[in-house]
Nucleic acid binder design. Structure first.
Lengths: 195, 195
DNA sequence: AATAAATTAGTTAACACTCGCTAACAAAAA
DNA sequence: TTTTTGTTAGCGAGTGTTAACTAATTTATT
């Protein structure tokens, strides 16, 4: 195998790590298997990452990248209502193109053994909640949204997105996620926007 | 340690297995640790279970037990609307009393390595969905519920329950789950029952 | 009721295997 | 010539599981 720059190798390693988790769960992510897939030796992995935890940190950064895309996409929308719609639809459109990322979303066992990873995950989740929360508030001030507890509505939307993605995974990705997204948005239009 | 009947030991072993998963995640469930907690030797575990998979099957049966309780509780209710309310509240009341079971609910990695376990889990999930789905249909026929896609509404309710429990876990069980449940039910009354 | 036989629930020791990670060294690139 | 990316070999620790044996309990027979 030829020599590559650290940046290139790091990307390859994280790509493969995500693939391995996608195919066999986090338990099947070993340095041995990872090295095999990347076609380098195990110690070579350690040239580019401090340890296994560091690799998972790299995976988490892919989530951060997604959040940046998400935020940029949402800010394109004018009305608060459209922002919420696109918050949902963008999730589904992205995951439909990158199935493997759904595994990362649900591999909660990755964080059981490490405080650093757990903290980083909590931070990401909190940031995403804040984003949706601020839009919800904006929409609420304009009187567009149903008069219900804010926190509960936040959990409803996030829980709904998560559940649809879980169903999609368990069905072996057998339906169109973005089509389902449209149906979901329609329902929310009726229920929370009273349209 | 004294001798016990298989039934008693099996219960002890499954209890401890759930506790271990609760405290350190599924990764920390080893036969070694399990035997240590039950205060018997490792091979003694194999007197009561075929293998590790068999132990997890035992954990899954605790979920089945819960479903039986749930179904019995729901059937006590007269109106379809009350059945849905209690479907939610019973989940929260039960989990508040048995925190450890939340870990089982979210330890999806348990099922990554075994087709048998995955199938059993799918079966349990499907049964629970069917239960809620039939009540929803009953409620819908009476014209109590908002006119939205059935499947989506099902995902909304199940996703909401799941998300609240996840938030409770991530907050280290720092709020009253049943109190939150009441707030959730209120919201759903407004949104889907149009009250 | 006492005792022998069979069954069950436990033990210690060890198996083959996988894990994350490192020391020591080689070769390519800067 | 120095730095960077790779290699082979191997470490200590942990994994699920089994073989071989022992002690307690249950059952059957005298």
């Amino acid at each position: 195998m030829s020599r590559l720059s650290t940046e290139q190798r790091q990307d390859m390693i994280i790509d493969e790590a995500i693939n391995i988790i996608h195919n066999g769960g986090y338990q099947s992510l070993s340095i041995r298997e990872l090295a095999k897939q990347v076609r380098i030796s195990e110690p070579a992995i350690y040239r580019h990452f401090l340890n296994k935890e560091d690799i998972i940190l790299g995976i988490l950064n892919r989530m951060v990248d997604f959040d940046h895309l998400l935020e940029r996409e949402i800010m394109k929308q004018k009305t608060a209502q459209d922002k919420i719609r696109h918050f949902i639809l963008f999730h589904f459109d992205f995951l439909e193109k990158k199935k493997e990322m759904t595994s990362v979303l649900f591999a909660e066992d990755m964080f059981d053994q490490s405080d650093i990873l757990r903290q980083k995950l909590m931070f990401i989740i909190q940031k995403r909640k804040n984003l949706l929360s601020s839009i919800l508030q904006e929409s609420s001030q304009k009187g567009e949204v149903a008069d219900v507890n804010h926190k509960d509505l936040l959990s409803l939307i996030l829980g709904l997105i998560r559940m649809i993605v879980l169903e999609w995974r368990l069905s072996n990705f057998s339906f169109s996620l973005s089509e389902r997204g449209k149906s979901i948005v329609k329902m929310l239009d009726k229920l929370i926007f009273m349209k």
